[in-house]
Design a protein around this nucleic acid. Structure first.
Lengths: 219, 219
DNA sequence: GATGATTTGTACGTATGTATA
DNA sequence: ATATACATACGTACAAATCAT
């Protein structure tokens, strides 16, 4: 008997479709027909319909009564507001991490951060993306609030299609590392306010770099 | 043709059930049978099932594969984390409000706040609850971020069953007003950091007062 | 444990609402 | 503007999983 329950049909459909949307394989405004979705996964309309409802609740899909569902189109205004909220939550997580991280946790953060300077010098974009995800995850863990971590992770996920392109900008890798450096310093010093401020500035920069490619007007 | 679309069956079921849960008419851990829910609203299992999925996405209902859904039971840990996240988001909203509110918006906030001191002196608990909701809404509007406002509103909604009892504590009305007073002062002065700090402290106090009745151990 | 009752998961059919020629 | 095509909303049926005895 498996300890992990065999994910239901709908769950796996949701996971696949969410991934398609977040990776841009399903473009914004694409109509999502219940029947077509069902066919794609070899099931009837019933589970397809439930998957669409779930995706709608996540904000990835738009649903109106008696109308076809469509992939959510983020307006520039909404993008800015989501990056702003993400910045605020990252700032909160960084502040709490500065106050609450154990010695061990601080050590690990400092370690992986310093090792990553190597990636910047080599211009290893793909590897840096992985490191970057890990860096932020360490802060979420360090803030010792699963709920806060979940909130910010959810927003990040929805913004993933935009954030993906940021490291194509020249110098962005370098700047990102420097921003991380300031966050790490503040956290190691236990400077909560400083960590919050640096984290907020970091995400603001990410937002700038990301929306630069999304055709969104800057604030 | 109505400008407002006639909400679907599922939507109204969700609204009713959410209200029942949030107002405590459906206690935590109550099993929610698909068939029973359908009967209650005079519909078949299909819409009932979709309503439960929706409530699950909102966090109000717990669903496991092939098992009955139940009303979500908040653990003390989760409660604390939710109040903490709410405090952080309220702090962010207050900070942004201090920076962005128009003269008119500041005027309105100051007005209704000062008028409310009357309610405190009269001990008008029910009226104070209404004023309190309005006070916070003005700050959400003043932060000029619909998305941030939506985030904090959602969390507040889920914590409503706990928050409801807070004003039963002796002196809580009085303290609440004083906390509001410090927030208003900071906002009127355009002191973003101060407003954030006071808002955070306010929600922390709300959390203390609320969980006091919920049997949750204090931090 | 095995068996019967209950409940969920999925398929499919029909009615109704929306879009399009 | 009407009719036709099409998509969704909901009901019903049955298989599979879970629970209770």
């Amino acid at each position: 008997m498996p300890l992990i329950r065999p994910g239901t049909t709908v769950d796996s459909m949701v996971a696949t479709l969410a991934d398609d949307i977040v990776h841009g394989r399903l473009a914004a405004d694409t109509p999502l027909d219940e029947g077509a979705i069902g066919n794609r996964f070899g099931v009837s309309r019933t589970p397809a319909r439930e998957a669409l409802r779930e995706l709608n609740a996540m904000g990835l899909v738009q649903r109106l009564p008696n109308r076809r569902a469509t992939v959510t189109l983020l307006t520039p205004k909404k993008m800015r507001e989501m990056f702003e909220a993400m910045a605020e939550l990252e700032a909160s997580a960084a502040r709490l991490a500065a106050e609450r991280m154990s010695v061990q946790e601080r050590q690990t953060l400092a370690d992986i951060h310093h090792k990553s300077s190597n990636l910047v010098q080599r211009g290893a974009v793909e590897e840096y993306k992985d490191y970057n995800a890990f860096f932020h995850r360490l802060i979420y863990i360090g803030c010792h609030s699963d709920y806060l971590a979940e909130l910010v992770t959810t927003i990040k996920y929805r913004l993933a299609p935009l954030r993906r392109a940021q490291f194509e900008l020249p110098q962005r890798l370098h700047h990102s590392w420097q921003e991380h450096d300031r966050i790490v310093s503040a956290i190691l010093e236990g400077d909560g306010l400083g960590a919050a401020e640096q984290a907020r500035a970091h995400i603001a920069a990410v937002g700038q770099a990301s929306t630069h490619f999304a055709g969104a007007e800057q604030l």
